[in-house]
């Protein structure tokens, strides 16, 4: 298996799309393989810039992305795309339909598009999204777009993934802006009001502008106030200004040192997530043992309180963690 993996990685680094696709499947399906793949490709990553595109369902994220890919290709970028759609919590199945808006790029040798299902993750991305980005990064895609599932208010995992976050909204969602203010607003570096040929675009613009006004001091200190760009993806209106805004933000991130800051935060989050999930696994293993079951029984029978019981289990965990 190790040799097979080496072969796949070699091919992927040479740009073989079948090998890249296979590696993404490995990091998606198999924790142990994911570890091996990432350990090997990680030294080759860090060259790609990651742009996240998020926003409510039906706001036109995929269509906008299709147009952005074109502009990025015109400027010579090799573009990777990861488009996330939800897995049904009832059947485990998923219908991934973002790709169909971008299909004209599928035969472009400089574009790699991968659809991804959330498989139970709740933050707007899939668990393996970050690892898939690393595979694309190592394979020479220097600009990677990540499209989240259609989000409401609190699915903000995209900040743990992207260097620049574009929030796409549309007119006519009623109190949408109110909702955005509760969480999504803080993660956006750029706002796009898509479907701007519709009625109500001025209202959305004003509401966003006013919401941003509240944090004027913060923007001053940061040296970046999120621009609001009106777009109509279908007719291309505003798409180029949006692309220019993204590029301006990239430059700002690099020159201000914010990129390093954001990537430090992200690395920390990533390490934390890995520790937390392996600890959680050990805890499950411990609790599945006979000794722990007796302890739980004692808690049920009020012979022991839950805090003392967990203390006892934690003492044992120390050994497990270094196994």
């Amino acid at each position: 298996m190790a040799e097979e993996l080496d072969g796949l990685i070699d091919l992927a680094l040479k740009g073989d799309k079948k090998a890249i696709a296979r590696l993404i499947t490995l990091v998606e399906n198999d924790e142990e393989k994911a570890k091996e793949v990432i350990q090997r490709v990680y030294p080759l990553t860090g060259k790609a810039y990651v742009v996240g595109v998020t926003g409510p369902p039906g706001s036109g994220k995929s269509t906008l992305l299709d147009k952005l890919i074109k502009l990025a290709r015109d400027e010579g970028h090799r573009v990777g795309v990861i488009a996330v759609d939800p897995t049904s919590p009832f059947t485990g199945g998923a219908l991934l339909g973002d790709r169909l808006r971008m299909q004209r790029h599928s035969t472009d040798p400089g574009v790699f598009i991968r659809s991804m299902a959330t498989r139970g993750a709740l933050g707007g991305l899939a668990k393996a999204t970050n690892d898939a980005i690393k595979v694309l990064d190592a394979s020479g895609y220097d600009l990677i777009f990540v499209e989240t599932v259609g989000v409401g208010q609190i699915e903000v995992d995209i900040v743990k993934t992207a260097d620049t976050v574009v929030l796409v909204t549309v007119p006519g969602l009623g109190d949408e802006v109110q909702a955005i203010k509760a969480g999504l607003m803080e993660v956006a570096d750029i706002f796009a009001i898509n479907k701007a040929d519709r009625e109500g675009v001025e209202m959305v613009y004003l509401e966003l502008k006013m919401a941003l006004e509240f944090e004027r001091d913060k923007w001053k200190e940061l040296g970046w106030e999120p621009p609001i760009v009106e777009t109509t993806a279908f007719t291309l209106r505003g798409v180029r200004p949006l692309w220019e805004a993204i590029k301006r933000h990239m430059e700002y991130m690099e020159s201000s040192g914010r990129l390093r800051e954001r990537r430090t935060f992200r690395a920390r989050e990533e390490v934390k997530t890995i520790i937390a999930s392996s600890v959680a696994k050990r805890v499950e293993e411990r609790l599945a043992e006979g000794e722990a079951k007796e302890l739980i029984d004692e808690v049920v029978e009020r012979k022991l309180d839950p805090y003392s019981a967990s203390r006892i289990v934690m003492e044992k965990l120390k050994e497990d963690l270094w196994r």
């Binding site: 799309k17 079948k18 890249i20 696709a21 296979r22 993404i24 499947t25 897995t87 049904s88 059947t91 485990g92 199945g93 998923a94 219908l95 991934l96 339909g97 790709r99 169909l100 808006r101 299909q103 599928s106 035969t107 790699f112 598009i113 991968r114 659809s115 299902a117």
Partner: peptide, 27 residues
């Protein structure tokens, strides 16, 4: 999808090349 598969739909009017590239990239 309802049966539990992960399904990627390409949309209409696809060339054979586009379809095969989709199969490759989506593994």
């Amino acid at each position: 999808k309802e049966a539990g598969y992960e399904v990627i739909y390409t949309g209409i009017r696809q060339t054979p090349e586009q379809i095969v590239e989709t199969v490759v990239q989506e593994d």
